[in-house]
Write a protein that binds this DNA or RNA. Structure first.
Lengths: 111, 111
DNA sequence: GCTACATTTCGATATTTATGGAAATATAGC
DNA sequence: GCTATATTTCCATAAATATCGAAATGTAGC
């Protein structure tokens, strides 16, 4: 992953409303939730929510699909994984287990 | 973890220079690197670097320790783990394996 | 094509964040 | 306490981001 992309992904999550949106979608699973459902559940005005959904979608953190008059948003698990792997990449220069706290064991750098 | 703290942690990483700093520290391991070493390695002016180190430190993403005239900064692995766990918490409402892509298997919500 | 509903875009404003030179502060050896 | 070095604070400026009402756009059923 490129650094700039990682920054974009992180920035898309580094905002209270957007983090709440993303976590709701993570918990909702692959089917996701409609914009209206999110607006109601999180008590965010439509225009504000739309702005944040656009940020997350543009970053690639979530996906959108149209279904009837609704637009369903869902978490992009692949992006989340790539981000987590990037953050822990080459931890301690590969000298495991120097970071015993790490629950995740992402693969070493591949590119 | 509280939402606001998670946002602070994410925001501390959502900046190109800071992400580079953090990843350098992750790779350096528990001993960390001095401010001067980072400044030189990443080609960041001292004042700018100091600003970013403060941000990371204040967020709790890194730690600082004085040693002689140098200040060594190191990645806070516990914070990173907590953040990763928070992001994937209660994924798909616990209906594994609905998100087969997830490499990480963080514990379910505990609080 | 009219109506109803879902969602986004526009626009103006307020707030936060990033940058880096110069000056200030801290630490240590002599 | 003087000198050298490491790091931070101060400051002014520039740039990016968040908010949300009102208006516009899409979608579908009749």
């Amino acid at each position: 992953m490129e650094t700039k992309h990682a920054v974009t992904l992180l920035a898309s999550l580094a905002q209270e409303a957007r983090l709440a949106i993303f976590r709701s979608l993570v918990q909702a699973g692959p089917d996701g939730l409609s914009a209206g459902t999110l607006s109601q559940a999180l008590q965010i005005p439509n225009s504000t929510l739309s702005f944040h959904l656009k940020e997350l979608n543009h970053a690639g953190m979530i996906s959108a699909r149209q279904e009837s008059r609704f637009i369903y948003y869902s978490a992009n698990y692949a992006s989340m994984n790539a981000l987590l792997a990037y953050l822990t990449e080459n931890c301690c220069a590969g000298q495991a287990p120097c970071c015993p706290d790490l629950q995740c064991q992402p693969t070493q750098t591949k590119e």
